[in-house]
Design a protein around this nucleic acid. Structure first.
Lengths: 156, 156
DNA sequence: GTACACTAATTAGGTAACCTAACTGAATTG
DNA sequence: CAATTCAGTTAGGTTACCTAATTAGTGTAC
């Protein structure tokens, strides 16, 4: 530790009230670090986070069009097209054209896709499970509450 | 909503105690979504999250070797080399060889790099700041506590 | 009923951030 | 002093995003 400190030692809160600017920086860093770590630690199935997220939507909420998926994941249609392509190649979803509107393409999980999501659900992210397991019950409740807040934020 | 529901409606906890397996899935999804959203929403400076994270370490904790940086960020040396290259090209850090060990390269932030980190610190991630601003003080405390837990987890 | 605009999906080409494998040169060890 | 190890780098590949441009179906206006 040199004397070049400029950020690490600043106050994060005043009287128990986190300062939004500080929280933004801290929170961004924490989330970015964890995301990279999750990507690095993921084992077993060779699906990426994006692919898995899309398949999970299809399995959990039923068929969707490309545009619907791209909006749900906050991604542009061509990006979602690529993700869908790779899942299609892997046989985890199938495209059928909408009979009532020839422009639309209905994207649905195949039986294989459903099976894969269900099977890998509990086995994935062993590293994170280990970490969470080592936390106190209160810390887990904190993360659970935070997860709910995060999902709410990202959907707004 | 079809009857194809398989995951969305499962219990997340029992008597206030989150189940680790469920929390792993929920938390992973939340973090992945937020990370993608942050990447999509980031404006202004054209530095990526990885680059900024490295520069922040150099500014806040002083010079490091390539290996040290790669270990700190949980990334392989060639990946870190690329990140360092782009920061070097932008004039935000400089390399000097270690006088006591010719194999090592000391990487340090330039004055420009220090300035940039300090200046952009508060202006970045406007979108997230807005979201955090709209939360209650208690929700912010939850996220702050979660951030600390996340940082601890990722460093272990 | 043909022309025009709008929309959905896709293709092409580019970028950022990771990876593995293979190489260079410096330091250490038998 | 030869062999090994170690730090950094180069080359080439992958995933997941982007913008711009294209194809094709739909609906509307004359």
């Amino acid at each position: 530790m040199k004397s070049t400190h400029t950020t690490a030692s600043r106050e994060l809160e005043v009287g128990g009230e986190p300062i939004v600017e500080e929280l933004t920086a801290t929170f961004t860093d924490a989330v970015a670090r964890l995301y990279r770590r999750l990507r690095a630690e993921r084992g077993g199935d060779q699906m990426g986070e994006s692919q898995r997220s899309v398949l999970k939507v299809l399995v959990g909420e039923g068929p969707r069009t490309l545009r619907e998926l791209s909006e749900h994941e906050h991604v542009k249609p061509p990006s979602m097209n690529q993700t869908v392509n790779s899942l299609e190649e892997a046989g985890l979803l199938a495209r059928t054209s909408d009979p009532s509107d020839g422009r639309k393409v209905i994207i649905a999980a195949t039986a294989e896709g459903v099976t894969l999501i269900e099977e890998t659900r509990r086995r994935r992210n062993e590293w994170l499970s280990l970490q969470l397991d080592s936390l106190s019950a209160e810390e887990r409740r904190t993360l659970e509450a935070a997860s709910k807040i995060i999902v709410r934020i990202t959907n707004s």
